[in-house]
């Protein structure tokens, strides 16, 4: 397996520090290991937005984007690149971090 990229390492750190979850490897299947449930998922999106400034519209999310840390890193990298060369826009659906919490 290739060395985890810097972005993968940072996402793994978010799992460790914010979600108290030690994911064994960047290709661990987060659904199969039941690491990701709805509560962890909402927290994760919030931290990804805070950490990397990516605004995630619900309608853009597919399972495969969150299947492993590798996939999440790809997703975040794409969103960051996309955000840099387009003007901010609001989707029809609100961003996850905007949804009222608690």
């Amino acid at each position: 397996m290739a060395e985890p990229s810097a972005l993968e390492a940072r996402i793994r750190q978010v799992f460790r520090d914010k979600l108290k979850l030690d994911v064994p490897s960047v290709d661990t299947d987060l659904f199969e290991t039941a690491a990701l449930d709805s509560m962890v998922f909402v927290d994760l999106l919030l931290h990804l937005e805070r950490e990397f400034g990516v605004t995630v519209a619900l309608e853009d999310i597919e399972f495969d984007h969150f299947r492993s840390i590798e996939r999440i890193a790809e997703f975040v990298a794409n969103r960051v690149a996309w955000a840099e060369d387009t003007a901010p826009r609001r989707g029809r659906n609100q961003s996850i971090a905007d949804a009222p919490r608690e």
Binding site: F31, L36, D37, F41, L58, F63, F66
Partner: peptide, 9 residues
């Protein structure tokens, strides 16, 4: 069960 994470799904 994995649908539980994604409400739109």
């Amino acid at each position: 069960p994995e649908l539980n994470v994604l409400p739109h799904k």
